[in-house]
Computed example of a mutant assay.
Amino acid sequence: MPRVSRKQADLNRETIVDAATRLFRERGLHGISVVDVMAAAGLTHGGFYGHFESREALAQEASGRAFEQAAQRWQARVADQESKDTARRAVVGTYLSSESRDNPGDSCPVVAFAGDMCHEAAESGLRQTYLQGLNNLLDSLGSLLDTEDEADKRQQALVQYSLMFGALMLSRATRGDPLSDEILEAARAALSASKLRFFT
Rank of each mutant, 00 (worst) to 15 (best):
G133Y: 01
P178H: 13
S33M: 06
G93A: 07
T200M: 04
Q132E: 09
I32E: 12
L168F: 12
E26Q: 09
L184A: 13
I32H: 11
S194T: 11
L43V: 01
R172C: 09
F198V: 07
F198C: 13
L29A: 02
R172H: 15
R25Q: 09
L23K: 05
T200D: 15
Y161K: 01
G31I: 00
D181I: 09
D10Y: 05
A157K: 08
S98L: 04
L184V: 14
R172G: 15
E185Q: 15
G42S: 06
S143H: 12
A39M: 00
A167C: 10
C108K: 01
R154N: 04
Y95K: 08
G93W: 08
A121S: 14
L158M: 13
P104T: 00
F67P: 01
Q160Y: 10
R101V: 15
R101P: 07
E148A: 12
V37P: 05
S100L: 12
G46P: 01
E148R: 10
A70F: 10
E185A: 11
L145K: 08
N136D: 15
R127E: 08
A70E: 05
A157S: 14
G125C: 07
A90E: 09
T86P: 06
L145M: 08
S143P: 04
R25P: 04
D106W: 08
Q69K: 10
T129D: 01
C118I: 13
Y95P: 03
L58T: 06
K7L: 03
A173C: 05
G105D: 06
Q128C: 01
E99W: 15
P109R: 04
S194N: 14
S33C: 09
Q81P: 13
A20E: 02
Y161Q: 11
D10M: 05
E120H: 12
G64I: 00
D102K: 07
N12L: 03
H51W: 00
L184G: 13
Q8F: 03
G93I: 05
M164R: 06
A71N: 05
E61V: 07
V35A: 11
L168C: 09
D10E: 02
S107P: 00
E148G: 04
E53G: 10
M164I: 01
H51R: 02
F48P: 03
L163A: 06
R154K: 10
F113S: 03
A41Y: 03
